[in-house]
């Protein structure tokens, strides 16, 4: 079966700066792929090239087998794009927004009317469809933002940070609906800097850092790269910077990153056995108030691959 998306060696430069550097990955039909990376890693620039908003300096993109550069109109017909920003007209109602974009996608009038009802129902806004968007909460706007992309029944849904700035309840609602869409067989590209969202929704993950995909695989494959490394979360009262430097010198510690005013995240080979050495290493830098040893996970894999936490 033709993959939903194949991108190969994508490069985008602005002047001397290369913001996307030979990025390549593919998404199989019905697969949910997560692109995980900190802010500024190149996720949005990569997506802009995938949906035809930006022309890559090098490389190619094929959506459903169609080259985006050769036939952008046909390729775009297969994509439902949800931008990171709320791309709606606030002075219009949700229904009016949907009608306008639906007409732009070429949906016939009758089909459009029924599809508007369906997508409003899908995102839980049936009762508010005739209210102006500027009266909506952040979560409702986000859901409307997604609804627009679903109108034309795309083969590939691309969600760029779809839960930024929404309350936890709306976030859960959005993730539920995205999972449901994947369950129905829709292919998905999901970018986020929220690890738990990607872990929940996606079956395969690419980790992007400083414009490059540094790892690509299932969660199990990425975690396996850590070997017997555990993630250790340490909290202490004291100088976390000094403590992290001392911890980094301990044999078996591959990463030690300050994650808050009183917390340090460590990657430790055989974490449980090394705990006494770690506590001793902190020494007079502070008093350890808590230790948690976590089984290898995506968070640890990300730290291992990029040397930084996701929200740096």
């Amino acid at each position: 079966m033709t993959p939903a998306l194949v991108c190969e060696r994508l490069v985008k430069r602005y002047g001397d700066k290369t913001v996307v550097d030979r990025v390549g990955f593919h998404i199989d039909e019905g697969e949910a792929y997560g692109l995980l990376g900190p802010n500024g890693a190149g996720k949005t620039t990569t997506i802009s090239m995938l949906v035809g908003l930006l022309r890559p300096d090098e490389g190619s993109v094929r959506v459903g087998g169609i080259d985006v550069d050769e036939d952008p109109v046909a390729a775009k017909r297969l994509i439902g794009y949800v931008p990171q920003e709320i791309a709606l007209y606030p002075e219009l109602t949700a229904r009016e927004n949907l009608r306008y974009f639906g007409r732009l996608y070429g949906l016939p009038r009758r089909e459009l009317t029924s599809r508007i009802g369906e997508v409003l129902d899908l995102v839980g806004l049936t009762g508010r469809g005739d209210d102006k968007v500027d009266t909506y909460s952040g979560g409702m706007k986000r859901r409307t933002n997604i609804a627009v992309a679903l109108l034309h029944r795309p083969r590939l849904l691309i969600l760029d940070e779809p839960t930024v700035g929404v309350d936890p309840q709306s976030r859960v609602a959005i993730l539920d609906r995205v999972e449901a869409l994947v369950g129905e067989g829709m292919s998905l590209l999901y970018t986020s800097h929220y690890m738990e969202e990607v872990e929940r929704v996606c079956t395969r993950v690419g980790i992007i850092d400083q414009g490059r995909v540094v790892a690509d695989g299932t969660k199990r494959e990425l975690v396996a790269e850590l070997g017997g490394t555990d993630r250790v979360e340490l909290t202490l009262d004291g100088d976390v910077t000094a403590a992290s430097e001392k911890l980094r010198a301990v044999e078996g510690v591959s990463e030690a990153v300050v994650t808050g005013s009183s917390s340090i995240r460590l990657l430790v080979a055989g974490g449980r056995h090394l705990l006494p050495a770690l506590l001793a290493a902190v020494g007079d830098a502070g008093a350890v108030t808590g230790v948690e040893v976590v089984e290898p996970d995506l968070e640890a894999a990300f730290l291992h691959l990029t040397g930084s936490t996701l929200r740096d």
Binding site: P83, E85, Y89, V148
Partner: peptide, 15 residues
């Protein structure tokens, strides 16, 4: 600024 232009440009129509 509101990104609706990008949404239009992402539609299956000439840029």
């Amino acid at each position: 600024q509101n990104s609706t232009l990008d949404r239009m440009r992402a539609a299956p129509v000439p840029l």
